[in-house]
Design a binder for these strands. Structure first.
Lengths: 226, 226
DNA sequence: CTCGGAAATGAGAGTTCTGTCAAGTATTGA
DNA sequence: TCAATACTTGACAGAACTCTCATTTCCGAG
């Protein structure tokens, strides 16, 4: 007779395997792009058999959605964590910009995956824009930021940051790029030049969250057959 | 004995078929993304048999490259044509921004293809940034524009414009978006707010170049078998 | 009309991918 | 220790795709 609770036994195993698949997906997406990634390659990357994939995701679509969500989520977390103490909306925006661009050098795989998934999901995880939107509105309300169109302001920030990330990812700029990007964005939002520079060069609050899971580890137990 | 000139007969046919294939590629890329497009689908879209494709492109890579080049070329042309008469670098940049965003409503297929190809070629047709770069430099030299990092300035303009294009493409903004985007970009480049607004709302010089080839036409002679 | 070269065709061989499934292995509670 | 359950496996059928090539179609020249 089936227990009322569906899975009393292998608790956590399921979750861990799922994580392994998502991590693998991030890595493969980073390499080949979301559209061109073969499912069996993702399974292999996770050290799992082909069929296992289908125990966790119904289709490639489902995987893409989950991956996108995951990336957005971690992002969210990272950004939030890095500026809890900051009140000034302008500085909050600047920190977000710098953090994203900065993070590219730290974790190119995360960055590549983010860029590719961002580009292949329609209306890329609108959630990711929520904290930004909040800061923009707060800034405008207080007269700290100025812009006519909210949509345009979001495009300014997101677009510039993504472009900056890509530039760093392709090795066409060094880490100072993050600061330069943030300064330009602030100016675009109506902050005076000198102050924009000042804000953009303030020390960044520390960030403790890792964006991708353990560097290269196998993530599942290392069992392996001939 | 072969004539010295390789093809005296069917002149132009070859070129036209090639064009048809490229146009078809643009359309299919716009729909599915460059990574996921099947070659036989592109051939079909062009009204040609599968094998014909390989008379013109050695592989998918070759096609991608050619398509990217083609999009960049037309772009180039369109932008150049639309501002020959303008001298002020700030205004030139603004016109470029507005033109691109504006063009999305006119030709969504072109826009979608551009966005997708842009994202899947590495170092996306750097050529496309050349006119922009020239304007930025001229503007800075004359003290009209101000920015610390050239790379960041390019990211600001390109990134914001692409994001703006995407916003319009996804129906999240109307045509006034072009103006709003241009104004923010100008501010980011160091133009004072009120002047940025003024420049961004000046009437756009007319543009006579069509970016995609004939709307829906078959482009090859309409011969067709059962 | 006939010839010859340019271009197009579409069948098909070989490859890769997806999604399924019966069988196998680990883990837990009793 | 045993049975039940959760999970994994890898072979495989069927679908889709890539690229080749022998053949056919088209067209202008002689």
């Amino acid at each position: 007779m089936p227990r009322s609770v569906p899975a009393p036994a292998h608790r956590g195993v399921r979750a861990r395997t799922r994580e392994a698949l998502l991590d693998a997906a991030v890595r493969v997406f980073a390499r080949k792009g979301a559209g061109a990634a073969a499912i069996h390659e993702i399974a292999a990357e996770a050290g799992l058999a082909n069929g296992t994939f289908y125990n966790y995701f119904r289709s490639r679509e489902a995987l893409l959605e989950a991956t996108s969500l995951r990336l957005a989520e971690r992002l969210h977390l990272a950004v939030a964590a890095s500026r809890t103490a900051i009140d000034d909306p302008a500085e909050r925006v600047a920190i977000g910009c710098r953090r994203f661009v900065w993070q590219v050098s730290n974790d190119p795989v995360w960055a590549a995956a983010l860029l590719r998934v961002w580009n292949s999901t329609s209306t890329p995880s609108l959630k990711a824009a929520d904290p930004l939107l909040a800061d923009l509105r707060a800034g405008r309300r207080r007269g700290r930021l100025r812009y006519a169109s909210e949509a345009a302001a979001v495009d300014l920030v997101q677009g510039t940051v993504l472009a900056g990330m890509r530039t760093v990812l392709e090795g066409r700029a060094d880490e100072t790029h993050a600061t330069a990007i943030a300064a330009l964005v602030l100016r675009g939002l109506g902050i005076a030049s000198d102050e924009a520079d000042r804000i953009a060069t303030r020390p960044l609050p520390p960030l403790a969250v890792s964006l991708t899971s353990p560097p290269v580890a196998t993530t599942t137990r290392p069992r392996r057959r001939a």
